[in-house]
Amino acid sequence: MIADLIPVIIPAAGTGRRMKADIPKQYLKIHGKTVLEHTVSQLLSHPATGQIIVAVSDDDPYFERLTVAGHPEVKRVSGGKERSDTVLNALAALPEKLQSGWVMVHDAARPCVRHEDISRLVDGISEQDCGGILAVPVRDTMKRSVQTCLIEHTVDRVGLWHALTPQLFQVPALYEALSLAKANGIVVTDESSAMEWKGYHPKLITGHADNIKITQPEDLALAAFYLNRDEE
């Protein structure tokens, strides 16, 4: 279990092209608040988290209009071209006193993460671990395609997990892994994949499947349902 307050990085520099919206998906609204506001508020209200660092593009005109932008524990930093660049920028922006500690990284488009899952992640990681991630076991039958719509074979789902966020790692190790992966041209899709490439074996902490990532237009309605349920 980690005792100190943990800073949280939220990469929010993406455009979310698959949403087919006029604005980035993190600024679409659910129940009168943007997706990003829901996400930041959920993280701010957890007792284990400290400063929230939101990494957005330099030409982002939306973030400063949000109520959470003025919160004393919320800091804006410049994002990068790729997610790994964005996280590296945010890690470099951490105050010096936090550079040797732990950090969470959480997707901007996951507003439905439960407090109990964040607690489970924090409680499940010890100071001796390299870190860990929230995840859920794969339940569906998995297929691999040989072409766009043709099945090559069925993938054995035993041992397969859906990776979620937050992901929790020690700052120096994560910074080194992301930096070296970038220098070697390694494509990483989340923080854990950089740590895995470096030779670490992060822990899998079971979370809830309702911690969805808003990616497609229909995800907004599902997120609205989950958020409304949590508020009742």
Rank of each mutant, 00 (worst) to 15 (best):
G124N: 01
L98A: 15
E37L: 02
R114V: 03
L174T: 08
K25Q: 13
K33Q: 15
P172M: 08
M1V: 13
A55V: 11
P95Q: 10
F225V: 13
N211F: 00
Q216F: 05
T189L: 15
H106F: 01
L220V: 01
E127A: 15
V158S: 08
R17G: 12
S193P: 04
V188T: 12
I212G: 01
P11A: 08
R229A: 10
S145W: 05
H38G: 02
E196D: 09
L88I: 14
Y175A: 09
G207L: 01
N89C: 03
R144C: 10
R229E: 15
E37G: 02
S45A: 06
A194N: 12
Y27T: 10
L222C: 08
R139P: 06
H162P: 08
K143H: 08
L121N: 00
L44S: 05
M195T: 07
Q147H: 05
P72C: 02
L168C: 12
N184D: 09
S119L: 08
G124Q: 00
P166S: 08
A163I: 00
G101E: 05
R114W: 04
A3N: 14
K25E: 01
A93T: 01
P11E: 06
G199L: 04
T39L: 00
H46K: 03
R144S: 13
E231W: 13
H115S: 04
A90C: 08
A55K: 07
P202E: 03
V171P: 04
K33V: 10
R65L: 04
A221G: 03
T67Y: 05
V138K: 08
D60K: 07
G159W: 07
A109Y: 00
A55S: 14
I214H: 02
L222W: 07
H153R: 14
V77S: 09
I186V: 11
A109I: 00
H46V: 02
E196I: 11
I186Y: 14
N89Y: 02
A224Y: 06
L178R: 02
A173T: 14
L98S: 11
Y62T: 01
D22R: 01
V40T: 03
A173V: 15
V136H: 11
L220R: 00
D4R: 11
D123H: 12
P202Y: 07
Y27C: 13
D190F: 12
G131L: 06
P111K: 00
G199P: 01
R83V: 10
V155L: 13
W197P: 04
A183V: 07
Y27D: 10
A194D: 12
D58K: 06
H31Q: 04
M195F: 10
